[in-house]
Amino acid sequence: MARIFITGSTDGLGLASAQSLLDDGHEVIVHARTTGRLGAVQELIDRGALGVVGDLSDTAQTRDLADQVNRSGPVDAVLQNAGVLGGPHIFQVNVVAPYLLTALIHRPHRLIYLSSGMHRGGRFRLAGPDGPGGGDGSRGRGGSGGGDGSGAPSRVSYSDSKLYVTALSAAVARLWPDVLSNAVDPGWVPTKMGGPGAPDDLRLGHLTQEWLAASTDPGALTSGGYWHHQHRQQPNAAVLDPHLQDELLDYLAQLTGERLT
């Protein structure tokens, strides 16, 4: 049985994954933004899940979250599920936090990053001529840099953030051949983020990430994939560009002071 850490697991797909994996006999670490939110997963904690706390919009708390996981012992898989649809912290929560947790948590056997079909509409627009967060776009690839004082690029859309995190998944697969790193498009499912009218199947929305986290099926033992409902698909071509991957990794290393090695 595997030991699996799931970010953003107090509701939606993260909670569903935690429930299913616990039902299957795996050891699960659930994550809440605040101590108060742990109440939402009390039933899972009563069944043996471990709860950890940290606000992914805050770099210091994200670092502490990684430390909590490391202190609890080695994990076999990390399911990077947490995300926000918009707002001032979209780059921090959807991109920087997964990068930091990847860099700081003792290297697991498997990493799964939640992407979206909307990543295909995203654009790389990280650093202008004045460095990260400055200038008027990255090598002419559309959009503008800007920043909010934190070094993060301004005007990051949800599609942009999911393009970045999907590229991060592919970069990790390339740099760490001993780790199975994959991205998952869960579909448009009826969660708090997706809304009650979302047309896709909720069960299929969390099945693939559970399969990649714990299954011994040959398909689940591959790396560098972009998956939708257990079928490997072709992502935005930028995801597979090693030069863009390295640009993203360099940008995030400058922003956080942590480099993937």
Score class of each variant (00 low, 15 high):
residue 218 P to F: 12
residue 194 G to A: 11
residue 204 L to P: 00
residue 202 L to D: 09
residue 179 V to I: 14
residue 190 P to H: 03
residue 210 E to A: 15
residue 203 R to S: 14
residue 208 T to L: 05
residue 183 A to G: 03
residue 210 E to H: 04
residue 192 K to S: 14
residue 185 D to Q: 12
residue 176 W to T: 04
residue 183 A to K: 01
residue 212 L to F: 01
residue 212 L to N: 05
residue 186 P to C: 12
residue 212 L to S: 05
residue 218 P to A: 14
residue 205 G to N: 06
residue 189 V to R: 01
residue 220 A to T: 01
residue 178 D to W: 04
residue 201 D to E: 08
residue 211 W to L: 13
residue 184 V to A: 03
residue 195 G to K: 10
residue 208 T to G: 00
residue 197 G to Q: 14
residue 203 R to H: 14
residue 191 T to Y: 13
residue 211 W to V: 07
residue 206 H to P: 03
residue 189 V to P: 02
residue 219 G to Y: 01
residue 191 T to G: 05
residue 208 T to D: 01
residue 179 V to K: 00
residue 215 S to W: 08
residue 194 G to M: 09
residue 200 D to I: 09
residue 195 G to W: 10
residue 203 R to T: 15
residue 211 W to A: 13
residue 219 G to V: 01
residue 181 S to I: 01
residue 186 P to T: 02
residue 207 L to R: 15
residue 181 S to F: 01
residue 204 L to V: 05
residue 207 L to D: 14
residue 215 S to I: 02
residue 177 P to K: 06
residue 205 G to C: 07
residue 218 P to M: 10
residue 179 V to C: 03
residue 194 G to D: 06
residue 199 P to T: 13
residue 210 E to M: 13
residue 200 D to G: 02
residue 212 L to A: 04
residue 216 T to F: 09
residue 199 P to K: 12
residue 209 Q to I: 12
residue 188 W to T: 12
residue 215 S to P: 06
residue 211 W to P: 00
residue 178 D to N: 14
residue 180 L to C: 10
residue 212 L to W: 03
residue 202 L to W: 08
residue 202 L to C: 07
residue 184 V to M: 06
residue 189 V to A: 09
residue 202 L to N: 07
residue 187 G to I: 02
residue 218 P to D: 13
residue 208 T to Y: 09
residue 207 L to N: 02
residue 195 G to F: 11
residue 198 A to M: 12
residue 187 G to W: 11
residue 197 G to Y: 10
residue 218 P to N: 10
residue 206 H to L: 11
residue 191 T to S: 08
